[in-house]
Design a protein around this nucleic acid. Structure first.
Lengths: 113, 113
DNA sequence: CGAAAGCGCAACTCAATAGTTGCTCTTATC
DNA sequence: GATAAGAGCAACTATTGAGTTGCGCTTTCG
């Protein structure tokens, strides 16, 4: 086992999540089932190609995986990557516990230090 | 109390997180302390203006808050928004429990439905 | 075999983003 | 009061990103 859980840069993951269309695609896939591009392109105003591009972005970030089955490409969400993003936010959020810490240096400190 | 915790669109939050520079800024602020732009501009190759722009993006997404203290602008992380992003990922990730569910429809289903 | 469904590739447009430089203004400091 | 530190504003460039259209290829179905 090499690289147990080294996530070198979570920014691309968040960048992939930072689009309303892609978030809704992930939501559709959030039940764990895989769906074809055609099925994921229904109930949207965008073209199939636009959806395809978004799916490839999600795939590039590791948020979904694709597999060719017959003439269709199926996409499924990858929980590991979603959990990696969650874990990162835990680290950002978990560094301070007290809500007062924010207000502390926000106002009280001497201006110029 | 109006709009208790209605987060209409988490995409802008993730978009703001989807940049390496902004993530490192958030990391610096992850202890809850507030820092000036000048202090946040050290240890980086970017100009102060670039850092300022990034901070304003984070502020626009609600991830940080700013306050003018004397001649300097102090920024502090806002845990609520970070937690909102976490909560959203919880909803995406929590919809399916079984890891096998992914593999199920990923391979086994009949190709054309 | 022929038609249609599903998809990939390429070129293109338009808008948003990252980053820079130059200037001005305010606030501390000596 | 002069100087320097901290920061805001505006204009500009270059790159990325979203979305489209058109075309061709493969796979299923009648």
């Amino acid at each position: 086992m090499l690289n147990p859980d080294v996530q070198p840069d979570p920014a691309p993951i968040f960048a992939a999540l930072g689009d309303r269309t892609r978030l809704s695609l992930l939501m559709k896939l959030s039940d764990g089932d895989a769906r074809s591009i055609a099925k994921l392109s229904t109930d949207t105003l965008l073209t199939r190609q636009a959806i395809t591009k978004h799916l490839r972005v999600l795939e590039g970030a590791g948020l979904v995986a694709s597999l060719r089955v017959g003439r269709e490409s199926r996409f499924a969400a990858r929980r590991e990557t979603i959990d990696a993003a969650r874990a990162y936010l835990d680290r950002v959020s978990g560094h301070w516990d007290d809500a007062l810490a924010r207000l502390r240096t926000f106002v009280e400190d001497e201006p110029a230090g």
